[in-house]
Amino acid sequence: MSTVLITGGHSGIGLAAVRVLAAKKIDLVLAGRSPDRMGEVADELRAAHGLRVTTLALDVSSLASVRVAAVQLRQLLGSGEVTSLDAIACNAGGRFDGAVSFSPEGYETTFATNCLGHFLLVELLLPYLSENGRVVYTASSTHDPDSLDGRLVGAVVEPDAVALATTGKGGAKALPAGKRYSTSKLCTVMYAYELDRRLRTAGSSISSIAFDPGSVPDTGFLRGMPKPVQWLSASAAMKWVTKRIGAVTSDAQFSGASLAALVADPDYADVSGKYLQANDGTLSAVRSARLSYDEQRAAKLWDDTKHLVGLTADEEPVLLR
């Protein structure tokens, strides 16, 4: 029996994905910071499909929380309560508008949530992934400044982990929320590619995949925006307009099913190091932003992120050293 760990699997695209995975009789570990909601989803899936669904308290914006969750999962694997770990879906994330805020460790919240927490989680759990396991990172078309989505949200800045983690510190002017978000997603794509390169160098058969779910306004992505903006973005008229002008569009059900396919379907066993996009009912491999293929920048991003999360020699997977 396969087991998939997914962050943010209790709402939006993640919820749609776990429902598809559960229907395929794949055991699940739901990791997130909403224990009551995760419990409700776990009960639903157990009752409907008779499978193992474990919940794991995890706030990806908190490095301390990630470390605790990783220890707990290792214990569950050791006891047999979780039988295996065959995929990690780094799905949770968000855009944080308004005044800049910071994580418990003092890092800007967008970068901490979308990048640092998942980076640490993968590093800590990679040794426990099955031989042909998969890591899937939920990215966004906003990461590409040459795309309409990237221009609408805010063109990315240099993918400098230290600068992104500390923007707005000490009263300094912070990057706008849109740029913080789009650049965090550029970093997400670069992490996926850099992990693939390191896995291939080590001779590993684990896959690392970047996934763009498209613009899905009926999820919680816009919850920080004013109510009129939320209503307009989710309206049929706006969906038609965004599709007509060339934005990457989807809905929670298709994007969730696409995420489920990437973490579990045999058809996607050989897409490591690629960028898969859900757009208007089609899931296909496409080119990501030009900057995302810069290997020198990606290596620096990776090494700087290791220092930011405080990864110790004992924590770093042997095959990535």
Score class of each variant (00 low, 15 high):
229 V>A: 15
209 I>D: 04
178 G>S: 10
219 T>L: 04
179 K>L: 06
193 Y>W: 05
215 S>Y: 13
235 S>N: 11
209 I>S: 01
204 S>Q: 10
241 V>M: 13
184 S>T: 11
212 D>P: 01
185 K>G: 02
203 G>W: 03
180 R>G: 02
239 K>I: 08
240 W>Y: 11
196 D>G: 02
180 R>M: 03
242 T>Q: 14
217 P>L: 04
207 S>D: 07
226 P>A: 09
236 A>W: 07
221 F>T: 10
188 T>M: 10
198 R>S: 09
186 L>G: 06
205 S>N: 11
240 W>E: 14
211 F>D: 07
178 G>H: 01
205 S>E: 11
195 L>I: 02
222 L>Y: 15
216 V>C: 11
203 G>R: 08
190 M>F: 03
213 P>R: 10
219 T>D: 09
241 V>H: 12
210 A>E: 06
235 S>V: 13
228 P>M: 07
233 S>Y: 13
213 P>D: 04
190 M>K: 04
194 E>G: 09
211 F>K: 06
226 P>W: 04
230 Q>R: 15
191 Y>E: 07
184 S>F: 11
234 A>S: 15
211 F>I: 08
238 M>T: 15
232 L>K: 13
219 T>Y: 03
237 A>M: 12
237 A>N: 04
224 G>N: 11
186 L>A: 10
188 T>L: 00
214 G>T: 04
197 R>A: 14
187 C>Y: 05
215 S>K: 05
215 S>P: 02
185 K>C: 02
221 F>N: 02
214 G>Q: 05
219 T>S: 15
180 R>N: 05
235 S>D: 13
231 W>G: 10
235 S>F: 13
217 P>D: 01
187 C>T: 09
205 S>D: 14
182 S>I: 05
222 L>D: 09
220 G>A: 15
